Simulated assay, not measured.
Amino acid sequence: MAAGGTEKRVTRRRQRTRANLLDAAFTVFAAKGFGRVSIEEVCEAAGYSRGAFYSNFATLDELFFALYRDRAELIADQVAGALALDGPGLDVPAAVDRVTDVLLLDRDWLLVKTDFLVHAARDTAVAQTLLEHRARLRRAVADRLSRARTPLPSVLGGADGAAHAVVAAYDGVTTQLLLDRDVEGARAWLGQLLTALLTDGGTPVRTN
């Protein structure tokens, strides 16, 4: 029993250390950019030794991938959660409102995400990781769009095509956000763009 209790404490402490390292790395990566950050800088920001780092991550790349996965999964969960509130039939305009309200539009995250994208473009294995997470997000969106109460625009080619369009719209709006830093403007524009994409620009009558 005592050994088991000790093991649980060690596991919790390691999880806390890992989380603190990821939080510190997020701040440092956002400020300086991946490729300009050392393990020592991450450790200093987190208040840990290199030993603590290597007990959780083999390399700085591994930490960067873990950071990206955590944030990407958060976004996928946000979108899936916002789209799951209508029950069997999806009210597209209402769902667009919810998605744009909850979706993570954090400029620091976008800086880190862009670094990851550039890194992935030069490394096939990294690119596969990125593609898998983007596919998960699209599947979550497509699953709900397939249950829309009103037909999706035929030009999108069904729910899968519509999901690709949603992710592309998010990419475009967040690129603009990186440059102009207008978060509220980005939310408003994303909502307008998604409504236009998914409803042929109209506003279908909502049903209760």
Rank of each mutant, 00 (worst) to 15 (best):
S38Q: 12
S49W: 06
R36K: 14
A45F: 13
F26A: 08
G35P: 09
S38H: 13
E44S: 12
K32F: 12
I39N: 10
I39Q: 15
A45P: 11
R36V: 01
E44F: 08
A31W: 11
F57N: 00
G47F: 14
T59W: 14
E62F: 10
R36E: 13
L63Q: 02
L60I: 04
S55R: 14
L60N: 05
F29E: 02
R50Y: 09
R36T: 02
A31C: 06
L63G: 02
T59L: 12
Y54Q: 03
A52Q: 06
I39H: 04
S49I: 01
S38C: 11
R36W: 08
S55K: 11
D61H: 14
F57Y: 15
L63M: 12
F57A: 01
L67S: 07
L63I: 08
L63C: 09
T27Y: 08
F65G: 01
F26L: 11
F64A: 11
V37L: 10
C43R: 07
V42W: 06
V37H: 05
F65M: 10
D23V: 04
G35F: 09
C43F: 11
F29R: 03
A52R: 07
R36A: 14
G35W: 09
A25P: 00
E40M: 06
E40V: 08
L63H: 05
F65H: 12
A24V: 05
R36C: 11
C43P: 06
G33I: 03
R50N: 06
F57P: 04
E40R: 13
A25G: 06
G47K: 10
G35C: 08
E40S: 13
G47M: 15
A45S: 14
A30W: 12
A58V: 03
L22R: 05
A52S: 15
A45K: 14
A52W: 06
F53C: 00
Y48I: 02
E62L: 08
E41Q: 15
I39F: 07
V42D: 02
G51V: 00
F65R: 12
E40P: 03
K32M: 07
F26M: 12
G51R: 10
I39P: 09
D23N: 15
V28W: 03
A24I: 04
A58D: 12
Y48N: 02
F65L: 15
A24H: 13
D61W: 12
S49E: 06
K32R: 14
L21T: 08
F29V: 01
K32P: 00
G33Q: 05
G51L: 07
G33E: 05
Y48T: 05
F29N: 01
Y54S: 03
E44M: 08
L67D: 05
V28Q: 02
L22T: 00
G33D: 06
L21P: 13
E41T: 02
F29M: 08
F29C: 01
C43N: 09
S49L: 06
S55Q: 13
F26Y: 14
N56R: 12
L63F: 11
